[in-house]
């Protein structure tokens, strides 16, 4: 942790090598957040790079009483939320809930590929509104406390609890609806065949 403080001070004095150390230390965290938020590798890389650039230019606003990782992840999540809002009206396949994918009869080979666990995670996250998504990712992949998520998303601790509850309920109900739909179609097929 002391090493990190030294890097921050040196980077503030204009030392780019010190900032490179910070980038190497947090590249996985920032990239993972961007990837989970945006759902594709190319956009995630660009967003993660932008997040680091913003951190570099705003380093003088960093308050050393806060955890550097929380501060950095806050910048990255805000940037990703902005990007998601910008593409809100351009509906992409990533935005579709998983049951719509699975009920699609157009490309069955793709359905099989998409049913892999990694894609399931991606599709589940894609159902959530941007700020719900950010809270869930910070909780599960970055193990941030309610307080830290509240700081990162500029809300209160109780708002974070409420957001996580709503997001989890949305995910659970979406999955249940999908399972029920699958069960109905299976029973209809069985009736048709039998």
């Amino acid at each position: 942790m002391e090493e990190e403080t030294v890097w921050i001070q040196q980077a503030l004095a204009g030392d780019q090598e010190a900032f490179a150390c910070l980038v190497k230390a947090y590249q996985t965290a920032v990239y993972n957040l961007a990837y989970r938020m945006l759902g594709n590798a190319a956009e995630a890389e660009d967003a993660a790079q932008e997040a680091f650039l913003k951190a570099y230019t705003r380093l003088n606003t960093y308050n050393s009483e806060r955890k550097f990782s929380s501060w950095l992840l806050a910048i990255a999540s805000h940037h990703c939320i902005d990007r998601l809002r910008q593409r809100r009206f351009a509906l992409s396949l990533d935005e579709l809930p998983p049951w719509r994918w699975l009920s699609s009869s157009r490309r069955p080979e793709e359905v099989v590929i998409r049913s892999e666990e990694r894609d399931e995670v991606r599709q589940l996250l894609a159902q959530l509104p941007p700020h719900y998504r950010a809270a869930v990712i910070l909780r599960y992949w970055h193990d941030l406390s309610y307080q830290e998520i509240a700081e990162a998303t500029e809300t209160t601790e109780s708002a974070v609890k409420s957001t996580l509850y709503r997001a989890r309920r949305m995910l659970a109900q979406g999955t249940l609806a999908h399972q029920n739909k699958q069960a109905v179609s299976l029973s209809q097929r069985a009736v048709a065949e039998g």
């Binding site: 990239y31 790079q49 650039l53």
Partner: peptide
């Protein structure tokens, strides 16, 4: 869903990511 998320790994950035960031910096 919670187990699925908890088991999903951290995604690693592609090789050379830090260098590309520093070039932009």
């Amino acid at each position: 869903v919670s187990r699925l998320f908890a088991d999903a790994p951290l995604m690693e950035p592609p090789p050379g990511f830090a260098d590309r960031v520093m070039r932009r910096v």
